[in-house]
Design a protein around this nucleic acid. Structure first.
Lengths: 199, 199
DNA sequence: GTCTATAGTGTGATAGAC
DNA sequence: GTCTATCACACTATAGAC
């Protein structure tokens, strides 16, 4: 068994790998992809630059892995989320999910919008499909609510395009020691979203 | 008079200056500040890299100039905007201003959020003050409306923090040949904002 | 798996001719 | 005001010892 095997000195793949991702995420969110060097990431992890290439074929792939992990977690998280059938309850559930899911993923959310432009076109397309898939989850709720006569929303697509940036905005200013708890924020934003769909 | 003076060959300060700003803006929005080289900017302008240093002392100052110009135009634009007294009419006016002002400034708006992290701390502070000043224009309207009993908004600051990203979102997807005209978008977003403040 | 060393390229910024 | 040429340095990625 793994835990009984003697470990070779300097063999830390299982711990270094996640540390590389975490360091890259933090540094890229803070300074931007192009501004962060492999040496900086290595220094944060506590290895030399060359060692990073055991975990990524190149810098570009490292960014792609971060963005893909973010979208995968988002879609899987929503998939596992318990969503009521009734449109209004489902929308409330979406608001709660979106805010709480990104609560401790501020860096991920930030780079998932900011660093798309540093991807190759084909990688960009893959992520756009995933983002579109997430947006259409919200649009599905809005459509059902409108068809049921619960929401007064005219344009479902536009409503989704208004709601998502509004909710994303929370991650730009939220602090744990701030004036409002995450639950209070969810409550208030639910009121805002209700206003948007009932306009 | 200027227009009668003979021009020295190769003297194009008055035309090259704006071209440098425009090229830098476009390239930085597309690729990120750190990813754009002075040589790339020079190539886009049609000069050699060394010539750029007639227009900026260094690369960092070029970025600062772009971000400052954006905030100055925003604040001056709002200052010149004709705003009604009644809170609801004033809010509608703000929505119109914000969307139409950024209509042909998508690159500026984008880098004004993206590239703040590439500024020195003191330059960052200057821009934060300006941004805060703009936000408090909106908060002033919201406060007056709430005090007059026109808006049902509980938390003015939070309302402003929800409305601004929602409006900014337009610039991420708007295209001139899109489904909706800018006037239709203003109308729809006005309905959304009304919903937010009446929640 | 990590290290050291390095190849090869690109960078921001400056100096001096015109 | 623009050009050419260049300095000094940083970068990504690789090779080979351990």
């Amino acid at each position: 068994m793994m835990s009984l095997m003697a470990r070779k000195q300097g063999s830390h793949s299982d711990i270094t790998g996640p540390k590389v991702q975490a360091a890259a995420l933090r540094l890229i969110a803070q300074n931007g992809f192009a501004a962060v060097s492999m040496r900086q990431i290595a220094a944060e992890v506590g290895v030399q630059a060359g060692a990073l290439y055991n975990y990524t074929p190149d810098k570009q792939s490292l960014l792609l892995a971060l963005l893909q992990a973010h979208m995968d977690e988002l879609l899987n998280g929503w998939n596992d989320w318990d969503v009521p059938d009734a449109p209004e309850a489902a929308l409330r559930s979406f608001v709660n999910f979106h805010i709480t899911h990104h609560y401790d993923r501020q860096d991920s959310l930030f780079i998932s919008y900011m660093e798309l432009r540093n991807l190759t076109p084909e990688n960009f397309k893959i992520l756009e499909v995933q983002r579109r898939e997430y947006e259409s989850q919200l649009e599905g709720i809005l459509t059902r609510g409108r068809d049921a006569g619960v929401f007064g929303l005219q344009d479902v697509r536009l409503g989704a395009m208004a709601i998502i940036p509004m909710l994303n905005g929370v991650s730009q200013w939220f602090r744990d020691d701030g004036r409002l708890s995450i639950e209070q924020i969810c409550d208030q934003y639910w009121a805002f979203v209700k206003g948007v769909v009932n306009g």
